[in-house]
Design a protein around this nucleic acid. Structure first.
Length: 690
DNA sequence: CATACATGAATTTTT
DNA sequence: TTCATGTATG
């Protein structure tokens, strides 16, 4: 019985319960974003100011979507002041404002994982990428448990870990010296700050009075603690004003520190916790949902919850047995062609997704799609901001924001090459190390002449002066037009276009890179504001920002890469990257023992691991709206030999009554016809990749 | 001894 | 696709 707002009974309960802590168990496709957005509206009605309501998500994309939907419901005016942000950007906000209490200047840099890798190699005096990755992984794991290097030392279990602890100690020193933080610190440091500083905690508790947390099942230990320190108000009446939304059955990030313990702790630590389950699924048909329920029923339950749908039975789930990966890819493509052919090509490419466990499985699928001339995109490919040219420019911007950001300095100073070689930089680095200053600071030291030859000093000073001047201008340039002029002037000054031409042997590739650079410039200029946003009739004037302001937020914003939602193409995605998305027609490939559930040779499969794999299967199944095809391999490659493929146990768990489809000649014929029609159509759009 | 090319192998990902 | 390792050649 839908309410005027179109919410069902459970959803209404969730929206209207404001009195205390609330946990919403939102099954797949049960309309949880709707609930969050309506709850925001309800909170506004109840007298909360927009700025007192914070909605926390994991990804920028989710935050953006939530803000957008909130805007539609409560209007742009209120939506503008809502705090809708990721854990990390909230952490950044807290640190920028109050990080000084931890000895952090407001302009601190944020190191991304490549910077961190470089730093760790330095800290551990190693050039081995794989080794440094393992350190990075280990150290991040500790940090996600809330451990610093001293505490990690106590738990280090073997020699490898003890080495990692040593590297971590050195790494902590480096970060402090550079006035930099890594992504984990964006959670850990705010938490530490709120713990140790009552004044700051009181201030933030007063600012953010009601918290809505999306995907709680994905929080790690430190994120949970951060939430607690915001929500545990000393005044009993204001304690625990939050709504946590999540689904224990969709917890698939245990391997990166997310812990389902957090969901168990909630009812214990907040005895008055109101638990509401959203069980009506608005996405999938009966066959699909029953298969999903069948699989997940094999996991132990944390909370009782069973999805149902009134969309009818729909099509049965198809299980397809394939000879090998190539055959499987062909059949996945044939399925798309058959459905499109059957629907008179009225079905968009957008409605199809092929999902797999591991990235490398995309290769064969891409090949088959190209051959069939179907447009596609590979989600989870490297982002716009990972490209070398964009990272070059980001390094410059970071250096402007924080002169002590040494990795940024090193990248900027040699991009493009300006007569400052490794020899000079090594001497400068040694000098800076001796005096415990940043490279940039060292550059202006009088005694530098003792360490670096005069000729090199000239180039260094020139660079330093330029950076200084550029910073000054960036700080005083606001508005899109002026920002663009400044940025293009800068690119010209440093001769970046020429640099790209020199560095690339294919002129076409260089031009493509330059195109990215120009996109990037436009993107920054746009964010410098003065922009009129159009919101369904309403126009909102956003504040103008300086180029430096925008530069400050860059490493936390990666939304440009997500463009392409509007392209009408087939999606290829890992199961992990598919979470939260949905398509009418989904094919799950490689549903074999060893692949899904994944089993590695050197680690044995614990019950927890298997359960997470099962949840992954569950996530995959529940992505589908109307049809689902699951394919298995009769033979699959392992190392250099081919082994017999064993269908995944999850297929049996779906409890399907249908017989496995071996090969359907009619489908093949339909596919052939569709393919012929398709051939006349446009060429394949290839994924955004270099 | 160093560089260049070929061959083979590959969890999952965000900030 | 990318990345690392190994072999062969200069």
């Amino acid at each position: 019985m839908p309410s005027p707002a179109g919410l069902n009974a459970a959803q209404l309960d969730a929206v209207h319960y404001l009195a205390g802590p609330c946990l919403v168990l939102a099954g797949a496709g049960s309309g949880k974003t709707r609930v969050i957005v309506h709850k925001i509206a309800r909170l506004l009605d109840a007298g909360y100011a927009p700025g007192q309501i914070a909605a926390i998500t994991f990804t920028n994309k989710a935050a953006q979507e939530m803000r957008e939907r909130a805007k539609q419901l409560v209007g742009p005016r209120a939506a503008k002041h809502l705090v809708v942000s990721t854990f990390h950007s909230l952490g950044m906000r807290i640190l920028r404002q109050d990080g000084a209490r931890l000895g952090l200047k407001p302009q601190f840099s944020i190191f991304d994982s490549d910077d961190v890798l470089g730093l760790l190699k330095e800290a551990g005096a190693s050039t081995d990428n794989a080794l440094a990755r393992r350190w990075q992984w280990r150290i991040s794991g500790w940090k996600n448990q809330g451990l610093n290097s001293d505490q990690a030392e106590a738990v280090a279990a073997n020699d490898d870990e003890r080495v990692a602890v040593r590297v971590m100690k050195r790494y902590e020193e480096q970060l402090a010296a550079y006035q930099a933080v890594d992504f984990d610190d964006l959670i850990g440091l705010p938490h530490q700050l709120l713990q140790q500083d009552d004044e700051v905690r009181a201030k933030w508790q007063d600012t953010l009075r009601y918290l809505l947390v999306d995907e709680v099942q994905d929080t790690n230990a430190v994120q949970y603690e951060l939430l607690k320190s915001l929500v545990d108000h000393p005044d009993e009446r204001r304690r625990g004003l939050f709504t946590a939304v999540g689904d224990d059955d969709q917890s698939i990030y245990g391997w990166r520190g997310a812990t389902i313990e957090n969901l168990k702790r909630l009812p214990q630590e907040y005895p008055s916790l109101k638990v509401i389950a959203l069980e009506q699924n608005y996405r999938s048909t009966g066959h699909i949902l029953r298969a999903a329920n069948g699989v997940i029923a094999n996991n132990p339950k944390l909370f009782e919850k069973k999805l149902w749908s009134d969309l009818g039975d729909g099509e049965p789930v198809r299980v397809v047995e394939c000879d090998g990966e190539e055959h499987e890819a062909e059949r996945a493509v044939a399925r798309i062609q058959a459905l499109r052919g059957a629907g008179g090509s009225s079905i968009d490419f957008n409605d199809f997704a092929i999902l797999y466990r591991a990235n490398h499985q995309a290769r064969m699928l891409e090949k088959a799609l190209r051959k069939a001339n179907l447009p596609y995109k590979v989600s989870g490919g490297q982002s716009f901001f990972d490209r070398a040219e964009i990272r070059d420019l980001c390094a410059w911007l970071r250096l402007l924001v924080n002169h002590d950001d040494d990795p940024a300095f090193l990248r900027a100073v040699s991009t493009p090459k300006r007569g400052i070689g490794t020899q000079t930089l090594a001497s400068l680095g040694e000098f800076a190390g001796r005096w415990k200053t940043s490279l940039y600071e060292a550059l202006f030291a009088e005694s530098l002449v003792t360490a670096v030859p005069a000729r090199a000093i000239g180039s260094l000073h020139e660079f330093g002066r330029y950076v200084n001047d550029l910073e000054y201008r960036a700080c005083h340039t606001t508005g899109a037009e002026d920002a663009k002029a400044l940025l293009t002037g800068w690119l010209k000054d440093i001769g970046y276009e020429q640099h790209l031409m020199d560095g690339e042997d294919s002129e076409k590739l260089a031009a493509a890179r330059w195109g990215n650079v120009l996109d990037f410039v436009d993107w920054i200029a746009k964010r410098c504001g003065g922009e009129i946003e159009n919101d369904g009739g309403m126009t909102v004037e956003t504040e103008k920002k300086s180029v430096l302001d925008v530069a400050q937020t860059i490493s936390v914003i990666i939304s440009l890469a997500e463009r392409g939602d509007d392209q009408n193409v087939v999606t290829l995605s890992t199961l992990h990257a598919a979470k939260g998305l949905e398509w009418s027609h989904v094919t799950l490939v490689g549903v074999n023992e060893g692949l899904l559930p994944f089993r590695s040779d050197d680690e044995d499969m614990t019950a927890e691991r298997l359960q997470e794999e099962r949840r992954l299967m569950y996530v995959g199944i529940t992505r589908a709206r109307s049809t689902l095809q699951v394919s298995t391999l009769r033979r699959r490659k392992k190392g250099r030999d081919t082994i017999q493929g064993v269908p995944s146990r999850f297929i049996a768990e779906m409890k399907l009554h249908e017989v496995t489809v071996k090969e359907d000649p009619r489908e093949k014929l339909k596919a052939l016809r569709a393919a012929a029609a398709e051939r006349a159509a446009q060429a394949a759009t290839v994924a955004i990749k270099t």
